[in-house]
Write a protein that binds this DNA or RNA. Structure first.
Length: 189
DNA sequence: AACTGTCGCGAAG
DNA sequence: CTTCGCGACAGTT
């Protein structure tokens, strides 16, 4: 449970604090943590949408990446249960379609959202280049595409691992190139 | 102002 | 023919 103090009003009347109103906004997050082979996957969601996913070889870095502290309480969530099942199936080589997960994208720029949307159009098992994505969003800012993909809050669901260099090189991956290789290997079967 | 997961060209081996 | 270095590119934080 994440508690954010929104506003604290203190009204000074007649020389002393006589009316103190406190409004607290409580945000509830559900947390999923699972390990598939050597890779840890963490995901958080709010009441209706996924908020962030993180991949790592080290469990500890999940929580920093998700921007939560690790000993928060966990609440069950049907969304995360579905995600957990899908991820396990995906890991066992099933061609899972992650397209219809509700994602919280409201905080991101139009450009970022269009890059991610086009990334989601790359079919399972196929790859496209950063340049290809750039064409789709009408820019020659290839590096800008890379920058936005590096900020991808939903790895696997937004399959940025399917985006590689135009010359066939792998490019990069924010969670580490080994994880990118691993995901591509899973999809090659 | 600095950063990024790029691209493509020219020069060198 | 392959590899390397470098400058241009564009959008974000």
């Amino acid at each position: 449970m994440k508690i954010r103090l929104r506003t604290i009003f203190q009204e000074k009347l007649n020389g002393h604090y006589s009316n103190c109103r406190i409004r607290v906004k409580i945000k509830m997050f559900s947390l999923l943590v699972l390990k598939l082979d050597s890779i840890w996957i963490g995901a958080i969601c709010n009441k209706e949408k996924l908020v962030r996913i993180s991949l790592s070889f080290k469990k500890e870095s999940l929580f920093a990446d998700l921007r939560i502290s690790k000993d928060k309480e966990r609440y069950s969530s049907s969304l995360l249960e579905r995600l957990r099942d899908d991820l396990i199936d995906y890991w066992h080589l099933k061609k899972i379609n992650f397209d219809n997960y509700p994602l919280k994208l409201s905080d991101y720029s139009y450009f970022a959202k269009s890059v991610w949307k086009n990334t989601q159009r790359i079919p399972y098992g196929e790859v496209r280049s950063y340049k290809w994505i750039a064409h789709k969003v009408n820019t020659r800012g290839y590096r800008a595409v890379g920058r936005v993909l590096s900020l991808n809050p939903f790895p696997i669901i937004i399959p940025c691992h399917r985006v590689i260099r135009n010359d066939g090189g792998l490019g990069g991956f924010s969670a580490g190139i080994e994880i990118k290789k691993r995901l591509l290997k899973i999809e090659k079967n």
